[in-house]
Design a protein around this nucleic acid. Structure first.
Lengths: 210, 210
DNA sequence: TCGTTCCGATACGATTTAGTTTCGAAACGG
DNA sequence: CCGTTTCGAAACTAAATCGTATCGGAACGA
């Protein structure tokens, strides 16, 4: 973070106050540009222009593009969604296929835009893990615990590994095809990989697909 | 591809011949730089310098960086490895943990370096799929077929999905941590996900890890 | 009112990179 | 030989982009 002179109370603070709404506007603009063109195609000028702000206003708050993005991601409101459909399968599908909501579509685009930057920026990986991976894993945990509580499945020993399957397959598909997979793909992964592994019932038994 | 005047036989061809060794040197240099700094940090100057060639020599062959990389990837010799350890588990581990060979380490680094470019370049995705995904999938197919032939497992209906699990988890781990996962992680994926799904024997039954 | 700071806008310098051109030397063919 | 093409090397142009500086105006506090 850059100059936080605003927060320094010891010295008298003359002059115009910083407009907090500019922080929010710049962060939002950063996320939008990030979602549209990806991390390394994203320029500081584009962010400032999108926010209707000058570059000086941006650089008064963040030292460079990396800090701006890290802060913008960190300020994103965490996903509140926690499905409760009554079955593990229904919950998993609801969680993974939340693309109905425009807000979640935006989150997905942001994640896709981050991919190119994640490989080399450790700070970006940290905030990505905190904002996207951890909440999702927590929801997974809740879903499985509830399924156990219902007696739907037995307790899962290797939960951490299991909770990574669906996101992994989605990411892999994203990288290979250039865009996020559709709901059918996700449901297939859930029905043919996740649910069989935990011994949960699958509605339509595996058909011959090979 | 650029000017292929060299291959045009109809016109008389005076002057010095193109040195085919420069093609190979430039492609090899491109792969090395790609493996070291990644697709979007890779510069044409660095490739030419590494190859001990002038940029004119490079641009005489390829129109731009994208074409160079696509061609360089396309010319990589496909992996010849096809493990045969006697068991499906042994084969899968041997295939996924082939990091003993320096040649395979290089292939891994090239793939990691490509990640940042794959998201937006369709041609890159195509050649990536052809050179890395397809051969790997073919080997997987052979491994499973042999296991079926040995009576080790029953025929697998959803083979395509299964063959993507290990690469997906590896890629996911790479993106989240910044480097390829170690062998222990890969073995865990094989033992706790892939083998249980196909009903193959796992040496050490799942311990409580949660 | 007056000095200070923030604001948006824009100009600016510095750096990086892509792709082109030029140069002298060397290889080829007639 | 002699014209043509390739070679490595390097200069060059053009564009993108970063981060800073400047400007007139507005918001604050004393």
């Amino acid at each position: 973070m850059i100059q936080t002179s605003q927060t320094d109370e010891s010295v008298h603070a003359p002059g115009r106050k910083r407009d907090a709404s500019r922080d929010a506007a710049l962060c939002q603009a950063a996320l939008e540009v990030l979602a549209e063109v990806g991390y390394d195609r994203m320029t500081v000028d584009a962010v400032a222009a999108r926010a209707g702000a000058g570059k000086a206003t941006l650089y008064r708050r963040w030292a460079d593009k990396a800090e701006l993005v890290v802060d913008a991601i960190g300020r994103m409101k965490a996903r509140p969604v926690l499905p409760d459909t009554g079955t593990l399968r229904g919950d998993l599908i609801a969680l993974a296929c939340h693309v109905h909501d425009a807000d979640d579509t935006f989150r997905t685009d942001v994640q896709a835009g981050l991919v190119s930057g994640l490989v080399r920026d450790a700070k970006l990986r940290a905030v990505f893990a905190e904002q996207f991976v951890a909440p999702r894993k927590a929801v997974f945990r809740t879903l499985f615990d509830r399924a156990v509580g219902r007696g739907e499945i037995a307790p899962v020993p290797n939960f951490v590994l299991l909770s990574d399957i669906v996101p992994s397959m989605i990411f892999h598909q994203l990288i290979l095809t250039g865009r996020p997979p559709d709901a059918a793909f996700v449901i297939t992964v859930i029905d043919q990989i996740v649910l069989p592994l935990v011994g949960a019932p699958v509605p339509d038994p595996l058909r011959e697909l090979s």
